[in-house]
């Protein structure tokens, strides 16, 4: 049950590397497992690798869901 949060690609580098924005924090990741990623695309990140490209609508829906999750939804039911 692994939450997978969409991140935005902000820079492409040589050797299948890229910089993404994870909630305001920039992070280096690998694009070796997915094809055709451009700056501005949303990808799902898993342990340092982009594993899936999301279409913008899907990414927005997912991000809205995570925003809604907030903090209190992460707690056990009473």
């Amino acid at each position: 049950m692994c939450l997978a949060i969409p991140v935005k690609v902000v820079e492409l580098h040589d050797g299948d590397q890229a910089t993404v924005d994870v909630g305001g924090v920039r992070k280096e990741i690998s694009l070796a497992l997915v094809d055709g990623i451009a700056v501005g695309d949303y990808v799902i990140l898993h342990v340092g690798y982009a594993i899936q490209k999301l279409d913008p609508e899907e990414a927005e829906k997912t991000l809205a869901l995570f925003a809604e999750l907030g903090e209190n939804m992460g707690t056990a039911p009473a």
């Binding site: 049950m1 692994c2 939450l3 997978a4 799902i44 898993h46 594993i51 899936q52 899907e58 829906k61 997912t62 869901l65 995570f66 809604e68 999750l69 939804m73 992460g74 707690t75 056990a76 039911p77």
Partner: peptide, 24 residues
Amino acid sequence: FACRVLEGRAAEEALRLVPLLFSV
């Protein structure tokens, strides 16, 4: 307990959201 975000939704919608939330 993040899956609790599915509570209160229609079952069909919840089923569509599950793979988006847990896409690993």
